[in-house]
């Protein structure tokens, strides 16, 4: 066991971990931040995406020990300070960009990373960016629409309610 220290959602966090402890396990099991989900073991589904030092990372494919000293942000810190939904979260609700909710935390974290580097992505850019986030419920239509809406684009001409 070694001790790791990092900043998670703006607060100092520490814990004793084994070498093999994944960042996702540390967040879920030691910090009780269960919003970060684990949907696969081959680093493909993206349900576990968090931000480490401002960049999207798959928390199931990073050791907790590697996050020593890092700034980690999870889905639990994505709402506005007053607890209301952020622009991206609100767009997901407004455009029905989620169903079962399991992939949703990773989708929101990836969407936030995308819009930071590309504030007005095209449909194609959104779809390509989501290569590492698998959703089984929505068929992606409303996720793509929500992300484009969150970027301030008019999505009213995209088919469907």
């Amino acid at each position: 066991m070694t001790q790791v220290k990092m900043t998670v959602n703006g607060k100092a966090a520490s814990g004793d971990v084994e070498g093999r402890t994944l960042l996702s396990s540390f967040l879920r099991e030691q910090l009780n931040l269960t919003g970060t989900h684990v949907g696969c073991d081959t680093s493909q589904c993206g349900a576990c995406v968090v931000h480490v030092n401002g960049e999207a990372v798959k928390a199931c494919t990073m050791l907790a020990a590697e996050a020593q000293g890092a700034e980690v942000t999870t889905i639990e810190a994505m709402a506005n300070a007053d607890g209301s939904l952020s622009v991206i979260q609100q767009a997901f609700q407004d455009h029905h960009g989620l169903q079962c909710g399991f992939c949703t935390p990773g989708m929101v974290m990836s969407a936030a990373a995308l819009l930071k580097e590309n504030p007005k992505p095209t449909e194609r850019e959104v779809r390509v960016y989501l290569e590492g986030n698998i959703c089984r419920c929505t068929g992606y239509h409303n996720i793509v629409k929500a992300i484009m809406a969150a970027s301030g684009q008019d999505v009213s001409r995209i088919a469907a309610e």
Partner: peptide, 19 residues
């Protein structure tokens, strides 16, 4: 036996649908 060989549909495999 995993997502390495079982191809799950991704966002860029699919279009907007007219429903």
């Amino acid at each position: 036996a995993s997502y390495m060989d079982y191809a799950m549909p991704r966002a860029d495999d699919l279009p907007f649908y007219d429903v």
